[in-house]
Amino acid sequence: MLEINNLRASLEEEGKEILKGLTLTVEAGKVHAIMGPNGSGKSTLSYVLAGRDGYEVTDGSATLLGQDILGMEPEERAAAGLFLAFQYPVEIPGVGNMTFLRTAVNAQRKARGEPEMDAATFLKEVRARARDLKIDAEMLKRPVNMGFSGGEKKRNEILQMAMLEPKICILDETDSGLDVDALKLVSDGVNAMRSPDRAFLVITHYQRLLDHIVPDVVHIMVDGRIIKTGGPELALEVEKNGYADLIGEAA
């Protein structure tokens, strides 16, 4: 599904290299988790994959379903099936949540040559999914993320993901800021979307998310590289011992 090969990327302005030859393959139907110390480049990886400005890819490749995504515009990557749930979702004053969602859904459909979703169907779908995530109607009416609490913003990311039905879902610390109940809601939302033709890349610091969204594979990222890959037990090891041993092992 998602194949990243020897990816190197630097900050455009400072020229500082953040991703230093990262290789990772996420198969269809699987959930992969990435853990790693602060500043190791996890968010940078997610931004580079989503196509944010400010990074220069100096080497390597990234393909989604065989298509090279690094040369695409962010909107093309989205239409190709890539979704990033932001670590820090952005507030957009004046743009209504519903208008935004509907524009996004239909823009992606248009890009893929599919018919637009009509207003009634859209409304029905949003309401049903919002209900599952306990996002109330009043929040849907507000401008995008405006005045949302940290946890509400994260739930709104999952609502967008549910509506857009992407192929690869990258979740960047979606668990941070969530209370225990919200963590359960969000995890249920993600689990409901698990399917043989969809994959997840879950960036997190904590085992508690992985208790709910059980990963098939866990990667440890340090200093812009994956230094170790294993099963769910790897996350438990990190939880218990931190990263020091793993870093020592790899060195």
Partner: peptide, 12 residues
């Protein structure tokens, strides 16, 4: 905000 919108598939 512009990147956020684009990342959801809305063309620039």
């Amino acid at each position: 905000a512009l990147f956020y919108l684009r990342s959801r598939g809305v063309p620039r």
